[in-house]
Computed example of a mutant assay.
Amino acid sequence: MTSAETVNGILTIPTIDITPFVADDSDGEARAAIARAVDEAARTVGFLQITGHGIPDAVRDAFTAATDAFFALGPQAKRAYICPPPINRGYSPPKSESLATSLGITTAADLFEAFNVGTTAADYPELDLPAQEYAANVHPAEVPLFEAAVGAWFAEAGRVARTMTRVFALALGLPEDYFGRYTDHSIDVLRMNNYRLPSADAPLEPDQAGMGAHTDYGIVTVLWADQVPGLEILGSDGRWHPVQPADGALLVNLGDALARWTNDQWISTMHRVAPPRVGGELVPRRSAAYFHDGNTEAVIECLDVCTGPSRPPRYEPVTVGAHLAAKLAGSRARVPNPHAGREAARLTATPLAMPPPR
């Protein structure tokens, strides 16, 4: 399948088997077919799901068990791992963030809680990397296996993300290793999300979401998620379409950096997580997003293969670090981002997608 369609009210996004890239298969036609399928998905929906990713079930199971153990801790224990907003690490309590503010749009605080780990300066001792972007990780002492289990998933999801950048390069007609120069010390973050709500009948504010409407900030996101309703993609019809992953598949979506590199030839997917409901009742939901964002000093500017006399660049060049800082100041510090006009316009231009005025 190479295009999205709706079946029984659920958006069925393209499913692509990336085994030839994971197995380093030399079959050029098989790899070219995958690149063509990814290009079509990137142009039409910006979301796909991948099979053949090679992550063992045991790694996933240990990872989800460790994250479940952390989120089961009491509020006081979890709050000990809160980091200041500029440090994208540690614990974020419920209603402490608003993802829509990364677009410059003010809404009610989001319901999710999260825990972040990421690439650190210590991972690259030969480089003089900024401590804020490459901050040290914190790990909950109450969950002894957390660091090892989360670290194993971080490594596997990172491998998948880097594999996808090779596919992207081929899909754009570039050398397969093209993005390597921009990602050899990439700011990568793994965000573990829990949509635990106070009760099944908890009252919600009119515009409150599990996670507010946003585009992801970097190059590519590799997402594991429960098969529980909640994730929704904004379609070209201005409506939100539910998405659920297939058994064993990972969801992959493109971020702002790739949309900017491709001059909007590829889509940075607008998505949100509605308060998860089954049979009309609020239910728990979990996910884990690995964000592959690029080197802090890397300059994002429209690729020559995506520009021309009839398609001038739509974006000014910006470094990965500056772009991420503006986005994170919005979502984490609740400072509306003034630099996300093109992304925000996709939401504000479709009244059906906007929350009611506050």
Rank of each mutant, 00 (worst) to 15 (best):
S102Q: 08
T101L: 14
C83D: 13
S92Q: 08
P93I: 00
F115I: 01
A121K: 08
K78C: 05
A135T: 04
L103D: 10
R159D: 15
F115H: 04
P125M: 03
A148W: 15
S98H: 01
R89C: 09
V143Y: 04
D128C: 01
L129A: 01
A109W: 04
Y124M: 02
P84A: 07
Y91K: 00
A108S: 14
E97S: 02
P130I: 00
L174R: 02
Y124F: 13
E113C: 02
T120R: 03
P93C: 00
A100Q: 10
A157M: 13
P125Q: 01
F115A: 01
F168P: 02
I82P: 00
R162S: 14
E97N: 04
L99K: 06
V138K: 13
A171G: 09
A109C: 10
I82L: 11
Y81P: 10
L170A: 11
V160E: 12
L73M: 13
L129G: 01
M164S: 09
P93N: 06
L127I: 03
A135Y: 01
A149H: 13
L127H: 10
E156L: 06
Q76R: 14
A136Y: 07
L103C: 09
L103Y: 04
E142H: 11
A136E: 14
V167K: 12
A136T: 10
G118L: 01
D123Y: 11
R166F: 05
P85R: 05
A77L: 12
F112L: 14
P75G: 06
D177C: 06
S98T: 05
L129Y: 01
S102N: 09
V138W: 09
P93E: 03
F146R: 09
G158E: 11
V143R: 05
A122C: 06
Y178N: 00
Q132C: 08
A122T: 06
L174Y: 03
G173K: 02
Y134F: 02
E147H: 15
A135C: 08
E147G: 15
E133Y: 08
P175A: 07
Y134A: 00
G104M: 11
I105D: 07
T165Y: 07
V160W: 05
N116I: 07
A157G: 12
G74H: 06
M164G: 06
A148D: 15
A109N: 12
S98L: 04
I105A: 12
T107S: 06
A77C: 05
E133F: 08
A100T: 12
I82W: 06
S92V: 03
A171N: 08
A148V: 15
E97A: 04
A121H: 04
F112T: 10
A80L: 12
V117H: 09
G173T: 06
A100L: 07
A171P: 00
I105G: 11
N137V: 01
A155R: 14
L129C: 04
Y124T: 01
A148T: 15
F112Q: 13
E142C: 11
E176L: 07
F168Q: 12
P94K: 00
I82Q: 05
L145V: 15
A77F: 10
E113P: 04
Y134P: 00
K95P: 02
A121D: 02
C83P: 10
D110H: 00
T101A: 14
Q76L: 14
R159L: 13
L103N: 11
T107Q: 13
V160N: 10
A171V: 05
P94I: 00
P94N: 03
T119C: 02
V167F: 08
G104T: 11
F112I: 12
D177G: 05
